[in-house]
Amino acid sequence: MQAALVQFKPRKGDVPANLAAMRDVFAQLASGPVELIVFPEAAMTGYFLEGAVYELAVDAPTMAAQVDAQWRAAGGSRPVDVVVGFYENAFGTFHNSALYVRCGLPEGVHIVHVHRKMFLPTYGVFDEERFLTRGRRLSVFETPFGTAAILICEDAWHALTSTVAALKGARLIIVPSASPGRGLSGNGELESNVRWRAILSSMAAEHGIYVVYAGLTGFEGGKGMSGSTSAFSPRGDLLASLGPLEPGIISIELDPAEVDLARATIPLLGDLSAVLPDLWLDDEIPVTRRLEELT
């Protein structure tokens, strides 16, 4: 599957301008072989909205229709899959969500999946749970590549989320993100981006899974979104990466055979499936104990 990972620089709160910029990206890609286009977290509004999230959040069908309209306006004459992060208004409950839609179908647009961010960072510079409700389920879904899952930003920082996705069959993990860059002591690279790379690489290598990451870029009130859109092979190798500061696109072919080969070489996921019951049924795990107390 041919994928395009878009490092996107939104204008804060200016949805029409950001949709127009999305249309420009589509126009650049429409005549090529791309089958999946991934935009970052909160791409159509910018990330830090505080109370304005209630003004700008839309429901998933509205977001899907807007994305589909841009694809068609850009001359997209065939179906294409698009992932985009957006603030979702689900009947008055607000989420930091990412939409996986199939655009350009003769019958309209098809929502394949909506992932609602489960880990809402609310510490330091982050304040998400003050304004948003967390998602409650990590589901996988079918794509032309195979089974996939979406993890939004901090979702991916917890080893368990990618593990659950892989156990459910994911062979591709898509990570839309908005990460304020910090830490300047690094050797030519932000410390926060070094950390991201380590997380994404080990996630890919442990489960034998493709990991693609689309990062927001541009400054929001002094906080610089750190871009670094990147792709990791199922062996954990960094295949491509953009810098932190400029918009851009990574064009990459994802080969399902690479997943099979990685898993055949190091069958960690198979090993985990076998051992999982012993780990999971361990009554010393706090969550298990609490459930028993509840019942």
Partner: peptide, 24 residues
């Protein structure tokens, strides 16, 4: 450490100034 990568820092702060002054 309080050591900074000066090239990285300068580039980051210059991008900040351009975004904050010119664009916003």
């Amino acid at each position: 450490s309080l050591q900074i990568d000066s090239a990285l820092t300068a580039g980051w702060l210059e991008a900040f100034l351009r975004d904050e002054m010119q664009e916003r």
